[in-house]
Each structure stands twice: as C-alpha cells, then as structure tokens.
Computed example of a mutant assay.
Amino acid sequence: MAKVHVTNVVVLDNPSPFLNPFQFEITFECIDDLQEDLEWKIIYVGSAESEAFDQVLDTVYVGPVPQGRHKFVFQADPPDPSKIPVADVVGVTVVLLTCSYR
C-alpha cells in the first residue's frame, strides 16, 4: 500500500510562454510518518522516440514528512530548446512529475 497519495496538482501560470519556469502546486497526504525524504522530480520529455532527449528540470527533497496533508509549490526552469530535436520543438509533449520514497 502506498504511503503517499498525491491528491491534487495545479499548474500555475497557465498558459505561459515556453521559456517561463514550470510551476506546480502539489498537495499530497502521508498515511504514516516518513523518516526519510521524498524525492520529487520534474522531467520534460523532449521526444517520444528516445529517452535520450528527456531533461530533468529539477529535483527537490522534502522530508522528513509527518503524517497528514501537505502542500508546496515546485518550480523549475524551462527545458533547453537546443536539446530538443527540431522535429519535436513544436507539438505535443509530456511533463512528468514524479515522487519517490526510498
């Protein structure tokens, strides 16, 4: 059973120019006290064809975290357009928000 439940993610400053930072207001609940940090990441997928173009925009460690509901704003610099294949600069993409424990 998961110890962390993400209950809401709000994309702030939306819509926004491409070169503005990403901002997410994240609300999560812990069902137990967590003695170790949670690792949160924002990953920009630069191409559906290869993970080689993925960019980890930022990583933040939150913890220790007591049981209960928590909220924070996670902000990261935008992706580097020079690392995105020309064919993928304009079009559909994915921004992954991950949370890991241990």
Rank of each mutant, 00 (worst) to 15 (best):
A2F: 03
A2K: 09
V4R: 09
H5L: 06
V9R: 00
L12Y: 02
L12N: 07
L12G: 05
N14F: 15
N14W: 15
N14Q: 15
P15E: 03
P15Q: 05
P15D: 01
S16N: 08
L19S: 03
L19M: 04
P21E: 05
P21F: 13
F22G: 10
Q23N: 14
Q23E: 14
E25V: 13
I26T: 02
T27G: 09
T27R: 10
T27M: 08
F28P: 11
F28W: 15
E29S: 08
E29R: 03
I31S: 12
I31C: 12
D32R: 01
D32V: 03
D32K: 04
D33Q: 08
D33Y: 04
D33A: 12
D33M: 12
L34M: 12
Q35V: 02
Q35K: 09
E36K: 08
E39G: 07
I42C: 10
Y44G: 02
Y44E: 00
V45T: 13
V45Q: 08
G46E: 06
S47P: 03
E49V: 12
E49C: 06
E49S: 08
E49G: 09
E49T: 14
S50E: 07
S50W: 07
E51C: 02
A52S: 13
F53L: 02
F53R: 05
D54H: 13
D54E: 15
V56P: 00
V56D: 06
T59I: 14
T59N: 06
V60H: 01
V60A: 08
Y61S: 05
Y61P: 00
V62A: 04
V62D: 13
V62N: 07
G63T: 10
G63E: 12
P64M: 06
G68K: 03
H70Q: 04
H70P: 03
K71L: 12
F72V: 11
V73G: 10
V73Q: 07
F74C: 01
F74P: 02
Q75D: 10
P81V: 05
P81K: 11
P81M: 11
S82F: 04
S82P: 03
I84W: 03
I84K: 07
P85R: 08
P85F: 00
V86P: 06
A87V: 11
A87T: 12
A87Q: 14
D88R: 07
D88Q: 14
V89L: 15
V90G: 06
V90N: 09
V90F: 10
G91W: 01
V92T: 05
V92M: 07
T93W: 00
V94Y: 13
V94M: 09
V95N: 07
V95R: 08
L97A: 01
L97Q: 07
T98M: 11
T98H: 12
Y101A: 07
